[in-house]
Structures are given as C-alpha cells and as structure tokens.
C-alpha cells in the first residue's frame, strides 16, 4: 500500500489525519448508584494531523477521555465530533493502543496484526499491508511467534502494528510505553514520532512522563485532579527530530512542573 511509505513532512497539512472537536464534555462513572464525576467541561479543538499529549495526576480521567474519543463509552454531556461527525461507536479509523499490549495470546503476531482487516472482511485483498506494518515496527521475522514469546517492547510494537494496519486517521495512545524499561521507551518514542510523520494521523497521547510529552507532542494539555478539567496547555513548536538535551525543552519542562504544582521539586 502506498500510504505506508509516503512521507508527509512535519507541520505541513497532512492528508489522512482527522480533526477532533470536543465541546463542553462531561462524564461520570456510576459507582454503586452514585455518580462519580470524572471529566468536566472539556473544550478542545485538535487540528488534523496534530500530536497532542495529555498530562495530569494519575486517576484524573485522562484515559476516560481517550475512551470517549475512541467511542468505547458515550459521554453523559457534551459531544465529540470527528471531522464534523459525532462519535457514537468504536470505529477502525480511531484505534487505541493501550498500556498493556492486549495481544490475543492464542494468535501469532501476524494473526494479531491482521485482526482489524479480518474483522472487517478485508484480509484477502490487503494481506500485504499486514507484512508492511510488521516490517514498519521492526518485527520482521516474528510473524509466526506467539505473544508469550515476545518481550514487552516487542509486544507493544506488535500492538502498534495492529493499529497501523487499519490506516487510522486518529491514533489514540493510552500510556503505551508506561510499562517498558527506559531504554526501550526512549527508542520507541523516536519510532512513534517517525510513524506519525510518515503516516500523518492525528495522535492523542496520555502519559505520566513530562519529558515524553515534550519530546513527542506539539501541544500538551494539562489536566486537573478528578473531575478533570483543562488547567492550561503548553505549545511546543520545536521542529522534529527533536533533541532530548534541547535547553528549550528543559525550559518547557520547568513550565510544566509549575503548572502541575510541583515547582518545589525543580
């Protein structure tokens, strides 16, 4: 498939990414009959092809926000529009990569990656995209391996390939690197930026790691404690590829600490 190899320059208007508009979004969990508010009054406009990261205290509702965008849950109030259409159900154009790779242990890597195509009955005509995606994430030669035989980083790569094969317009990353060791995490951060630049999908990333958010995203949304609302956002217009030692990123990092109320530790 052409799109896999097409290189779209960063910052340019990217074709395949979708626009996301979130208006007055509020959500609550039902906890034994009691409503537990998790999100309140979220307003956000995300440009097609933008890379946005969400930072906030743990348990604040970041993941819930992503599940709502994915259509895995429906919001109680407000709405989410993707390219003008309201989100009502999950759709293969919006793929989530979770913190756990959640590969199916009974399927080989190849069969896991081809899951989306198989589910939609497209596998026959698009078999080669599966091989392409596996190659793209560096798992060539592991098609016949079972998930239990993979290391954590490889499993997460396979999960990424499973998402990419569907040519999503939105990639939703819910702390995908959270459980990996730091070296693997650093190398996969670079790979994610590469993939995003090549494919041009809109990317939403939830992370606990300020440095990761600054290294990857163009915009960082800082959320408050539960029920989560937007405190502020940090724009990061540094061009890619970024450098970890960049003093400008260090300055942004200081700002982020301030805004998260952790300035004392700086």
């Amino acid at each position: 498939m052409v799109a896999l190899h097409q290189r779209v320059p960063a910052g340019a208007v990217k074709g395949p990414g979708a626009r996301i508009q979130i208006n007055e979004l509020s959500h609550a969990f039902d906890l034994d009959g009691q409503a537990l508010p998790v999100l309140t009054g979220i307003d956000l406009d995300i440009k097609p092809g933008e890379f946005v990261a969400f930072l906030g205290p743990s348990g604040c509702g970041k993941s819930t926000l992503l599940r709502l965008v994915a259509g895995l849950e429906l919001p109680l109030e407000g709405r989410i529009l993707v390219d003008g259409e309201p989100v009502e159900r999950p759709d293969p154009s919006r793929i989530v990569v979770f913190q756990d790779p959640t590969l199916y242990p009974w399927r080989t890597v190849w069969k896991n990656v081809s899951l989306g195509l198989e589910a939609r009955g497209l596998l026959k005509e698009r078999r080669s995209t599966v091989d392409d995606a596996i190659r793209l994430v560096g798992l060539e030669g592991f098609g016949n391996a079972y998930p239990r035989q993979l290391s954590g980083g490889m499993a997460q790569r396979a999960a990424l390939a499973r998402a990419l094969v569907n040519d999503p317009s939105i990639l939703i990353l819910d702390e995908p690197l959270g459980k990996l060791d730091s070296l693997t995490r650093i190398s996969m951060q670079t790979e994610i930026v590469d993939l995003w630049e090549k494919r041009g999908f809109t990317t939403l990333l939830v992370t606990h790691d300020i440095e990761e958010a600054l290294f990857l995203a163009q915009r960082i949304i800082i959320l408050s404690d539960r029920p989560a609302g937007i405190i502020t956002e940090i724009i990061n217009d540094r061009p890619y590829p970024r450098r970890r030692g960049d003093p400008y990123l260090a300055e942004l990092r200081h700002q982020a600490f301030e805004k998260l109320g952790m300035d004392a530790t700086w």
């Binding site: 994915a70 895995l72 756990d100 899951l115 589910a119």
Partner: peptide
C-alpha cells in the same frame, strides 16, 4: 480489554463470540 481491542478494530458481535 480483549473486547475493547476488537471493537475498536471494527469487529461485530459474531466476531467477538467466535474469534475472541
């Protein structure tokens, strides 16, 4: 989570039962 994955990938109920 297995169902979440399959649903975002476009699986219908039949797929969820027989393949998941």
């Amino acid at each position: 989570a297995y169902y979440d994955v399959a649903r975002t990938l476009g699986a219908d109920e039949r797929f969820l039962i027989f393949k998941v």
